[in-house]
Amino acid sequence: MNFPSKFHILLIAGIILILVPFFVGSYFLHVMIIIFFYAFLAESWNILGGLAGQLSLGHGIFFGVGAYTSSIMFIKLNVSPWVGFLVGGVFAAVLGLIISFPVFHYKLRGAYYALVTLAYVEIFEKLALKIEYVGGALGILIPLRESSLLALQFQSKKPYYYICFALMIISIGITHWAKMSRFGYILSAIKEDEDAAEAVGVNATKYKLIATALSAFLTAMGGVFYAQYTTFIDPKTTLSVFVSIEIVLRPIIGGVGTILGPILGSFVLTPLSELTRLLIGSGQSGVHLLVYGIILIVVCLRAPRGIFVEIQTLFRKYFEKRRGEVVRHYGTARS
């Protein structure tokens, strides 16, 4: 490969992102945090939705379970959110397994799987609204205690920035590992054709469940971070279909199943949603959804494999032209 390697580009981007907080204001930092945050969630979804090809619309559940678990533990038991990351993650993973096992076992695939997960989000949202112990419709207000790493509460935005940045990097690392390993190859076979995968000895249900648990665990960690960052959670904003859709849109626009597509999706979509909110005002709620809709239509028509794949292809073509080479691209789903 003669063109500037992906690794170098990422390294430079990483260094810039590490230095950013020293030069920008608080609002810009907030936008960056939200970008990282959605990038992390998108990448977590990507393990199940992209690598294993299961279009989950139920990630709102895992997100909500993470946020609620850690917040309740924090308020009622005074447990650090860092423990909440682990406990919330495990809860979400176990819940994911319980929900998904019958779905996978009875071979609900494609749109049917998506519909079942959608139904589950609705159920859990209603549950959270009804149960007083978790705050009901009022939600949970997380009291500001002290600015400390242990309580994951800070006066400045910088620590949040770096924590969220780290989460995003971790999710990229996990996805990269998953994709290059035995696990990833097997998931890609399941994504292509489940019957054919079973015919060559793949226990598809087992691998889909592992992917679900991993994806749910990470998504719940995002929920924990969200609760500590915004200090307020309620069913509508943490445990609803809207959360699921916010998560799913980014990988779809960036590139489902690629390692960096979901990250790119967040870098494109999140600032846009912030911008529309800023320009049009949050009073006109729903305008950012309109913008999402338009972008989604354009991307689906012009770049159905996602922006990332298109950019990659353009990039390759450009550098091959410069070297005067004619290379036919057969490509692979795994590149």
Binding site: Y185, I186, S188, E192, D193, A197, V202, T332, A333, R334
Partner: peptide, 13 residues
């Protein structure tokens, strides 16, 4: 597995 390479197809088993 249509979108996998021929080698990857054989590797799965």
């Amino acid at each position: 597995f249509l979108n996998l390479t021929v080698l990857e197809n054989v590797m799965i088993g």
